[in-house]
Design a binder for these strands. Structure first.
Lengths: 336, 336
DNA sequence: TTGTACGCGTTATCAC
DNA sequence: GTGATAACGCGTACAA
């Protein structure tokens, strides 16, 4: 390993000067600088970010932590990509963890983030009261919650207007003439799930329809649960004529069930999915969805985090992005 | 921040003893140990992994680097998940970078990995001769290539038998009676693309069919290119009766084109995709695909890497996993 | 403008 | 079994 010291010796200067050439080139004489830079190239010197971080006060490790609930969920993959792209553009590297929707794993990763002295952390908390997240924030590590909220904590937050997303989807179905509209909810611990549930209920009530508990099912945000819950709903004596599914993986499960039962979309049943995934257009019929700006969510989270890192005293902000109902062909008026 | 020193003072012992309690508890007297542990809890002490890494010889940073070509490609998301899961289980954290199929970004991330003193790196190289990867390996950093190969380098490698995957898919189509089978290739820089091309050619030739250049198109592994190339192929005077697409995103693009042209699957055209994604079964008709064990690929890569870290002198190994043709309903005999 | 000297938090070595 | 001490690679007062 080539050290600062080695460069200094080759260039015939002190280690301090080499450090300056690396960190504040303007403060060193052009001739010296050139000599040092030459030595750096000759030796292939790479500064150790580890040693640097140990010495320098917080806020310059050029590392940010990202704890993702599920990397295989395409929505979070988009979000991670947004974080990654923007962070990289700003000179930061991302230390990523996969929490697997598990509060314990989440806690473990947040520990690692602290132990690695990251400059800040971006996190969709597994739970609105995630103790690990609260503790991290209390310890003074800059934290941005993204997609999901942390209740009772003053933290920067980037979310999507979930109530509105579900509301508009439901209203779209109501406008088509549906009355029995079922809702499949994701993991209830995630703040997003409850908000979407709220949107569904609000829309129904405003149209004088009671959101029947029988038409509301709660899953775990994964594919199999979407399939199983859709099967339950479609076996109801009074079958719903439309389905709103609160996440993309569960939507896939529901679609499988619908196909398995030989039902036609939208003839027998209309369906609105959550998250506009690349495959939504390739389906037959193309899927009507609530599109969420996953990539932008990640991008904005990085922005908020960097602001916070640069100005810790800054007042906390919440950014709310808008979802968009994309009407395709999986929704139509119900058969009479 | 609570330091080792603080704990030592509270417990009335030397820093060295605290370090022992943390790293080799057996070597310290039970009473002392208890007192120290109590102090650790009382103060909420967390060892700094940064300081530890500075002091300790390579191989114990508990960090491994993973540079992914595209996090939004579900295949790589699976792979990343496999890496992440297994690494975590072994006590390692993953530092992840998104190279965006760009050799320069790849190089930048590999630099960061070195600067962070990771114990090793897992990488699907952007190119079989990626200079950054070769340099990293030459510098002695444990490296495992996954999914894609690095030519002319003695590195541990985990790949899928791509020749065979494409061969079997093509053979399946031949067995159904197809003769004009087109192939849409992914980024030609990736070793996987060339291997799949090879498999397609081999199968055709063995059945006495010339792999016409007109039926072979080269894309960039992204969705739009799949759509555009499918459009070219389907506009041919002698239209192919079957399509083999070398990656999942391009498959989606091709499906869109097929739908847009109003062609029926498999009546007008059969299609085999690469990668068995969650949505493959939700399509109408469900998609015949070559399934790749993305998760296992990641898992095995970690295993190889850890072996290498623990025994640097070990001879290099290559693990080849087998793909699996999953026949669903997007392939059938061609119309006469 | 440049060099000297110290410290960041930890672990390894050597005494005791 | 435990403590003092040096060292890991770098940044930064402070002095020159």
């Amino acid at each position: 390993m080539v050290r600062l010291q080695d460069v200094a010796e080759l260039a015939g200067v002190s280690p301090a000067t080499v450090s300056r050439v690396v960190n504040a080139p303007a403060t060193v004489h052009p001739d010296t600088r050139a000599r040092v830079q030459e030595a750096i190239r000759a030796l292939g010197y790479r500064p150790s970010r580890v040693a640097r971080r140990l010495r320098v006060e917080r806020g310059s490790s050029a590392l940010i932590g990202l704890v993702i609930p599920d990397l295989q969920n395409p929505f979070f993959a988009d979000l991670a990509r947004g974080v990654e792209d923007h962070a990289q553009r700003e000179g930061y590297t991302v230390l990523i963890g996969n929490a697997d929707e598990d509060a314990e794993k989440e806690a473990r990763y947040l520990e690692v983030m602290r132990a690695e002295s990251v400059d800040g952390v971006i996190l969709p908390p597994s739970h609105p009261a995630s103790p690990a997240a609260l503790e991290l924030a209390a310890a003074g590590t800059p934290l941005v919650c993204v997609d999901r909220r942390l209740a009772k904590a003053k933290v920067d937050t980037v979310v999507v207007d979930n109530v509105r997303g579900a509301y508009e989807a439901t209203e779209h179905l109501l406008a088509l003439g549906h009355r029995r509209i079922a809702f499949i909810e994701g993991r209830p611990q995630a703040s997003t799930s409850r908000e979407r549930l709220q949107g569904w209920q609000d829309a129904l009530r405003e149209h004088g329809i009671d959101p029947l508990p029988a038409l509301q099912r709660t899953g775990d945000s994964r594919q199999p649960s979407g399939g199983a819950l859709a099967a339950e709903l479609l076996a109801l004596p009074e079958r719903p004529t439309a389905l709103l599914v609160g996440n993309s993986l569960m939507t896939l499960g529901a679609l499988e069930t619908i196909h398995r039962l030989g039902l036609r979309i939208p003839g027998d049943i209309s369906i609105v999915g959550y998250d506009d995934m690349p495959w939504a257009m390739a389906l037959t019929p193309p899927l009507t969805v609530v599109r969420q700006p996953g990539y932008d969510l990640g991008r904005q989270a990085v922005e908020l985090l960097l602001h916070r890192i640069r100005d810790p005293a800054r007042s906390t902000t919440t950014v709310m992005l808008q979802p968009e109902l994309v009407v395709r062909q999986s929704t139509a008026s119900p058969a009479l």
